[in-house]
Amino acid sequence: MARKTQLLPKIALGVVGWAVALWIFFPIFWMVLTGFKTEMDAISTPPHLIFHPTLQSYHDVFAQENYWHFTFNTVLMSVFATGGALLLGVPAAYSMAFFPGKRTRGTLLWMLSTRMLPPVGVLVPVYLIARSTHLLDTIIGLGIINLLTNLPIIVWMLYTFFKEVPVPILEAGRMDGANRWQEISVVLLPLALPGIASTALLSLILCWNEAFWSLNLTSSNAAPLASFIASFSSPEGLFFAKLSAASTLAVAPILVFGWFSQKQLVRGLTFGAVK
């Protein structure tokens, strides 16, 4: 902009902008801070901002709480669900983006409508089916549910990204004798890689943070981090420092992941409605 912004309003804007940002972020900041306190410091009134930092709570979480077990479950489940959904979603999106038929739009909308089915509405049968197929409290079981709930969103996003790939490039590949699989794997995938990456990213975040099915379908064996943290809602939650350390460990990977990928996320999340 050619116009010079006046200094005073700019400072005022900065103050408001930063005040709001710090206020919204404060609980996360406080959680990280409390994780480095002793239990005594954590419940001191009034709360201390200055204290002797200690790694005791982190030590406790690793030693007593089997943190790695839950993290392993979360990572495995998220990767399984995302990988499976991409495996099903890429061919489906390819077919709809490049060979649209009369029913393509209807199919897409119907897929999204399955996502709008409230999970509570089908909690009972899913629980009973999982129980009778021995998928209750297994990583595979929870992974399948996450795969299914994310698949519509993944197909939509991939479809949006694939639509941006110029058709002549694919046709050129076909002229050179590429079959369908080669067309997808050699021509399309490299071109649409950024889009596929942001789709996978969103799916991983959704899986990592998913709570409803995690709390209802797993207990100890396959419990992901979301359930692990929920176990602190018992009176044990009064160990504030330990709770904070465990929470920080559960949130940090995906938070950092999110910070670095926010631009890609927006691209995918808006289904192309926002440029």
Binding site: I24, F25, P27, S233
Partner: peptide, 28 residues
């Protein structure tokens, strides 16, 4: 510093529901 302020504002979206619930219930 608006870039950093933005990152701070969008952060809670990446926090899993069970953590944000306990965080607010106990620490806040």
């Amino acid at each position: 510093g608006r870039g950093i302020a933005r990152v701070l504002v969008i952060s809670p979206f990446f926090v899993m529901p069970t953590v944000s619930a306990l965080l607010w219930k106990n620490l806040m």
